[in-house]
Computed example of a mutant assay.
Amino acid sequence: MTLVKFNNGLKNNAVNPFFNDVLDSLLNDSYIGNKLVARVPAVNIAETENEFQIELAAPGLKKEDFKINLDKNVLTISAEKKSESVEEGKKFSKREYSYNSFNRSFTLPESADHSKIEADYTDGVLKLIVTKKEEAKFQSREIAIK
């Protein structure tokens, strides 16, 4: 089933166009959707001949904020950041708390070597290299025709 967004002609309503624009912006799909998507960082996963590469976009964090665990064949990447800002003025005090966290899990294939996993965090991108087992690496050879 496909959902189709209809424009019922309410936007061109000459009676009260401001009300319709405000209502449309509150009910817009991207208004709600972007807030949910922003909580989990985007991930790129690539496979080469010798390894698997996992890149996670997580700008604004430090490498100390990350926690990477391996339980059997499940690789879990999580991060938690808390910050507090206090600004005091003449007759007011303003406090802003910020708490960001996420948790991503990946099931590693049988060909992954669990003892050879490396992680590096540079320029807002966490990059993990998971080496393949020797017997799982691509082996190419020429096959002779009889």
Rank of each mutant, 00 (worst) to 15 (best):
M1K: 08
M1V: 07
T2I: 07
T2Y: 00
T2H: 01
K5P: 03
N7S: 12
G9S: 14
G9E: 14
N13S: 10
A14R: 01
P17Q: 06
F18N: 12
F18H: 09
F19W: 13
N20G: 04
N20L: 05
N20C: 10
L23I: 05
S25H: 15
S30W: 02
S30M: 03
I32V: 10
K35A: 02
V37H: 03
R39D: 06
V40I: 07
V40Q: 04
P41W: 00
V43W: 10
N44V: 00
I45N: 02
I45R: 03
N50I: 08
F52T: 03
Q53N: 06
I54V: 11
A57P: 00
A57M: 05
P59R: 04
K63I: 03
E64L: 05
D65Q: 07
D65F: 04
V74L: 11
V74M: 12
L75S: 13
L75E: 13
T76S: 14
A79M: 10
E80P: 02
K82D: 05
K82F: 12
E84N: 09
S85A: 07
S85G: 05
E87I: 15
E87S: 15
E88M: 14
G89L: 02
K90Q: 03
K91Y: 11
E96H: 12
S101F: 12
S101P: 01
N103E: 11
R104V: 05
T107Q: 10
P109A: 02
E110Y: 06
S111L: 14
S115A: 13
S115F: 11
I117L: 11
D123R: 13
V125Y: 10
V125R: 10
K127N: 02
K127M: 02
L128F: 06
I129Y: 04
V130M: 06
E135H: 01
A136S: 15
Q139V: 14
R141K: 14
I143L: 10
I145E: 11
K146A: 12
K146S: 07
